[in-house]
Design a protein around this nucleic acid. Structure first.
Length: 261
DNA sequence: ATGACCTAACTTTTAGGA
């Protein structure tokens, strides 16, 4: 089962690229972030033409996540537990069946940016990460393979940042953000990309400004975290840079892993 | 030198992104 994640930065603007990606990459499940529309406005007819279904948690103008899949999603859950008055559309999770009949729980998550530090936005980011940690802990008790995929807005280490000095005041690299990302790994989750690749300076995001893409000055902030049962089954993980090279590209590019299930 | 983008919206300017 090929599971990919991509922050598309508006699904309406990116629809041609999204259709191209589904046709060429053929993921079984594609986790989308920043669809930036209500679920009812998601262009699902166009995706149905390619044999894909959509489950979306939308929001007007901002955020919004979705699961695009060949096989139907089951047991869909929208939002993390303990949401309180948090109504931002940042989490959707469902179960899928692999070709060999195995079950995998897949989440599409859009972790808060948290900038600027020293504000409520950074507090919200850290609190959201703690809710994610609590939920990951609960999922582990179920002893099923799962993949938490999405835009984490965290660069795990300086090697994941083109210029750590320039970024030192950024919420994506703060020790508090990195500690909470590490806490997910300490639970027993695996950073899928790092399970296969040791090279530094491999990115999933390049800012629109300052020619960052052309200079390959980016960030590794989109991640696939695998439960132990999923990590036992993973056979590959790659960043697909080709969508970022197109005209009117998203500032993120897809990253995917393959599970033998 | 500290510039440079992009998207959505009660749009002509702002908020949010990262």
């Amino acid at each position: 089962m090929k599971i990919a994640t991509w922050n598309v930065n508006s699904v309406k603007v990116r629809l041609p690229h999204l259709l191209d990606y589904l046709k060429s990459a053929q993921p079984d499940v594609l986790c989308l972030q920043e669809i930036k529309c209500l679920a009812d406005d998601f262009p699902q007819l166009e995706l149905q033409g390619l044999g894909y279904r959509v489950e979306a948690l939308g929001q007007r103008a901002y955020n919004g996540v979705a699961l695009v899949s060949k096989e139907p999603a089951r047991d869909i859950v929208c939002g993390l537990p303990e949401a309180g008055d948090d109504d931002q559309a940042r989490y959707i999770e469902a179960s899928f069946t692999g070709a060999a009949g195995g079950e995998v729980r897949v989440a599409s998550l859009y972790l808060p940016n948290g900038n600027p530090i020293g504000t409520d936005k950074f507090i919200y980011k850290l609190a959201w990460m703690e809710r994610l940690h609590g939920h990951a802990h609960a999922l582990l008790q179920r002893e099923i393979p799962f993949v938490l995929a999405g835009d984490y807005n965290v660069c795990p280490a300086d090697e994941d940042v083109y210029d750590p000095v320039a970024m030192r005041e950024d919420a994506l690299v703060q020790p508090e953000s990195r500690a909470r990302f590490r806490a997910l790994l300490y639970l027993g989750l695996t950073d899928s990309y790092r399970a296969f690749h040791r090279e530094s300076h491999r990115y999933t995001f390049w800012d629109y400004q300052a020619g960052r893409w052309n200079r390959d000055e980016g960030l590794r902030i989109d991640h696939l975290l695998l439960s132990p049962h999923a990590a036992d089954r993973v056979t590959a993980c790659e960043i697909d840079k080709s969508p970022r090279a197109k005209e009117r590209a998203s500032d993120h590019t897809p990253i995917w892993c393959e599970l033998a299930v």
